[in-house]
């Protein structure tokens, strides 16, 4: 059984994340821990000692009600590790603290897909994503998970990609394709010969084959992140590694409307 920490708020992004996770649970033996963080900086707080504790308790209660409402609305068919956890404090710190106490296999949250890459950059540039040690699933849209794409590019470590992916998914649980993305400034995407990247691709294909995976399509594409993102819309999940610097691969991840699993 894999354990996942899912962050929710009472909004559309969380609603999609819950539903998507419910679909994911058909592929992965998953148990969920729901968490929500109320950030006092956003509230008009006051006082110290008992007054402050009472005030914080009130916020926590309100947060719990928010989470309950969403869970009741969504009524997802998933196994839960325990009751939802509501914390008061800085979101990143509280989530990192929860993860340090309980080593989850996966972190999940919903984020509405946006037209601006800056939103995605600031999400992945946050302390939470930089410090997190487990893979993270960012649900940008609610789509059926009927095919997975392993997305490789310059800077993507094949070992990290394969080991993280195979730790979460059982062999042959879902059809998997592999794509190597090259940046190209303009024009329509161009499909290139697979053998040009054969050595690199084999670093992904071979260890997965050893674990019982059969990669169906292996492709190499050259294009702009925007156009390539558009080509990949049919995938129910795109799996790649955490981008450490601004690069076309990072931009492509930002532009993808699909749910993304970021390996660490």
């Amino acid at each position: 059984m894999k354990t996942a920490l899912i962050y929710i708020e009472e909004n559309l992004a969380s609603s999609m994340a819950l539903r998507y996770t419910s679909r994911l649970a058909n592929l992965i033996d998953l148990a969920l821990q729901v968490i929500h963080v109320e950030e006092p900086e956003n509230k008009n707080h006051f006082g110290t000692g008992w007054t402050r504790r009472t005030w914080e308790h009130g916020i926590e209660e309100a947060g719990l009600q928010e989470v309950d409402r969403l869970l009741k609305t969504e009524r997802i068919d998933c196994r839960f590790l325990g009751s939802p956890v509501v914390r008061v404090g800085d979101r990143d710190s509280e989530l990192l603290s929860e993860m340090s106490h309980h080593p989850y296999n996966l972190y999940i949250e919903g984020r509405l897909n946006t037209a601006s890459v800056r939103d995605f950059y600031s999400l992945l540039g946050s302390r939470l994503y930089r410090k997190m040690t487990c893979p993270s699933l960012i649900v940008k849209n609610l789509v059926p998970i009927d095919r997975v794409l392993l997305l490789a590019a310059e800077g993507v470590d094949p070992d990290q990609l394969t080991s993280c992916f195979s730790r979460l998914f059982d062999p042959e649980s879902i059809p998997v394709d592999l794509l190597y993305f090259h940046f190209q400034e303009n024009d329509s995407p161009v499909w290139e010969q697979e053998h040009e990247m054969a050595d690199y691709l084999n670093e992904i294909i071979t260890p997965l084959a050893d674990k019982g995976w059969n990669i169906e399509k292996k492709q190499v594409v050259r294009g702009t992140p925007e156009k390539v993102a558009d080509l990949l819309r049919d995938y129910g999940l795109v799996v790649s590694t955490f981008p450490t610097r601004k690069c076309p691969h990072y931009e492509l991840l930002a532009m993808l409307p699909n749910p993304i699993l970021i390996c660490k």
Binding site: L12, M16, L112, N113, T114, A115, S116, K140, N141, L142, V143, P144, R233, P257
Partner: peptide, 12 residues
């Protein structure tokens, strides 16, 4: 019907 969600800011 498969529907995609996107959020766009007014200045964009």
């Amino acid at each position: 019907v498969k529907a995609w969600i996107t959020m766009v800011k007014e200045n964009e």
